[in-house]
């Protein structure tokens, strides 16, 4: 695993320009926008996508054929990608939250700083991103970069479609899904700690299932 991580970090080193641009844009957001939440989401998303792009680097010029003759087991490849993508997202999210929190707090124009609200919005964006990664990674590993993105779009579209159809079916049956959803959300808003625990457990579970699927995919894949 260490070898794979080193390889990916060295590949990411080539993305210095994007990282510098990311920093500049983030600084710009910090100084121009009242809401620093966007900067956190933006940084974390770009960092995780950079890490996901290492899967495409591996495929470039039939690179996977040679890569998979190196001394590691196939499941370790999946493990390394999850560690790299989710791990780097965690680190970037933490740093971005810390910096934007400090800047917002110290900004002279802001008189009231609701720390728990700030952390909540930042946490929600992180959890959504990890869910997205849990969907994206198996698809990228299975289909590669271009087809992978296409399948993500199809999956997300299908997800929205299913939700809308489900809602209309429930409405016809006399059940107002929107009301129930608002009730659940209302409950979770009051019990923030319970909501956070549920969200974290669900995220971890999704990641684990996604990882198991990726292991199955990579173990069956032919190069």
């Amino acid at each position: 695993m260490k070898g794979l991580l080193v390889k990916d970090l060295l590949l990411l080193k080539n993305q210095k320009r994007i990282l510098i641009l990311l920093l500049l844009v983030s600084v710009l957001f910090l100084y121009s926008a009242e809401n620093a939440g966007f900067m956190i989401t933006y940084c974390t998303f770009i960092a995780s996508m950079l890490c996901v792009s290492t899967i495409s680097y591996d495929e470039y010029h039939h690179g996977n054929q040679f890569l998979f003759t190196l001394p590691f087991l196939r499941k370790v490849y999946a493990r390394e990608k999850y560690l790299l993508c989710i791990g780097s997202s965690c680190v970037v999210w933490f740093l971005a939250t810390l910096i934007s929190g400090a800047v917002t707090f110290l900004r002279p124009s802001v008189h009231t700083f609701d720390f728990s609200n700030f952390l909540l919005s930042s946490g929600v964006s992180f959890i959504l991103l990890v869910f997205f990664l849990a969907l994206l990674l198996p698809l990228q590993i299975r289909f590669g970069n271009e087809k992978g993105r296409l399948f993500v779009t199809i999956f997300m579209g299908a997800g929205v479609g299913i939700c809308i159809s489900l809602e209309s079916i429930l409405r016809e049956a006399g059940i107002h899904a929107g009301d129930t959803l608002f009730e659940v959300l209302g409950f979770l808003q009051i019990h923030t700690e319970t909501a956070a625990v549920i969200a974290l457990v669900l995220t971890a579970l999704c990641c684990f299932i996604s990882y198991l699927i990726s292991v199955k995919i990579i173990e069956k894949k032919e190069f």
């Binding site: 080193v6 390889k7 060295l10 680097y57 591996d58 010029h61 054929q65 040679f66 003759t69 001394p71």
Partner: peptide
């Protein structure tokens, strides 16, 4: 095992110096 494949190898975005670091860990 030492492997050479005709149409595949380490990522071409890497330098030989990078290959030293990578192989040292593998």
């Amino acid at each position: 095992l030492g492997i050479v494949l005709s149409d595949s190898g380490f990522s071409e975005y890497l330098t030989v110096k990078d290959l030293v670091t990578i192989q040292k860990t593998f």
